[in-house]
Design a protein around this nucleic acid. Structure first.
Lengths: 175, 175
DNA sequence: AGCGATTGCTTGAAGCGTCAAGTAACGCGG
DNA sequence: CCGCGTTACTTGACGCTTCAAGCAATCGCT
């Protein structure tokens, strides 16, 4: 049904020049659901936010990040890191959020290179209104489906993979 | 550092109308790495395929799916399901792959509504050339970082979440 | 047999993310 | 204190995905 099992039909591997270490049955069985998840979980999260609040999941992360920062203010770079996005992406998104009146941009007085994103009162209201629905979705799709030991395992597994994918991201490990 | 912990600062939850069940510390610790993964793992996979083979991860899935089908042929709908994508997305992608000479489209003689996507010989060569690099990446980022028990846990956890997100997707459970 | 409904796929437009290039502010060596 | 490099961010163009609409083939009801 997919690539890279040793036990499957003719597939590409039959011809390959040198011999890569194809995935075993067990490895494939672990990888396939994860591959599916990476396509569909973000889509499901986005769909819920879009439907219930008219914003993308990423936009929500940005607003939520700001809502918890001291002074509801964060430098663009820090906000980008927090929301797992590139600075460029954040710049575009904040521009849209600014046009919608939820965020304001101001240049940092101490160092003119920095730009601070500030959550407006209206933006704060937006987060407060959207947060419960988001949490409920995360619960329904992920958290409530797992046992306590599984949550611990997911944390350990997720952290380990993430540190491989992006070593600079400790995803809040420093807790 | 993020939303929805009970123990954190002022956040939105302090004001909310009714009382959603916010995530506990442990739940949040499991969710955060997963949220990061969903952004960054697909990006890493895409980057590798783009760099080494000049195609996206999704395009690879399409070619690989065809390469293992009997007759290297699959109906558009089946292929879309296999690659975890919408029919519309597949249609656009197959058009590009067709222009590049890797796939051919032909209308099903039995039922004119069906369209069969067929992998050309050149397309097959492309898959064979790209597969080892893809598998190596999956190993490097995911599989090789985990112990055998963790692989089993990941399979169980991933399957369970996926069945919540999309009940129609058994991601190869019928094995 | 005829015709509306359904199925399978395609298309065009709109929106978002990425990449590469650009700008502005600061720091530091001479 | 001048200029070069660096840092932080912005911008525009391009490609991809989605969404809504459309089209063609077939099914089912009478």
């Amino acid at each position: 049904m997919d690539v890279m099992s040793e036990t499957d039909a003719p597939g590409p591997m039959a011809v390959s020049g040198d011999q890569p270490r194809w995935l075993s049955q067990a490895e494939r069985a672990a990888w396939m659901p994860l591959a599916g998840l990476m396509i569909k979980l973000p889509a499901a999260l986005d769909a819920q936010m879009q439907r219930d609040a008219g914003i993308s999941h990423f936009e929500y992360m940005v607003l939520a990040g700001l809502s918890e920062a001291t002074g509801r203010t964060l430098r663009m770079s820090d906000l980008a890191f927090l929301a797992n996005g590139s600075l460029s992406r954040l710049s575009h998104v904040v521009k849209r959020l600014e046009q919608r009146g939820w965020v304001r941009r101001e240049s940092c007085p101490e160092d003119g290179r920095y730009t601070n994103a500030v959550l407006t009162d209206e933006g704060y209201r937006k987060v407060v209104a959207s947060a419960p629905g988001h949490v409920e979705t995360v619960r329904a799709l992920v958290v409530d489906a797992l046992t306590a030991p599984q949550l611990r395992q997911l944390r350990e597994i997720g952290t380990r993979i993430l540190s491989n994918v992006d070593p600079t991201d400790d995803c809040g490990a420093a807790k």
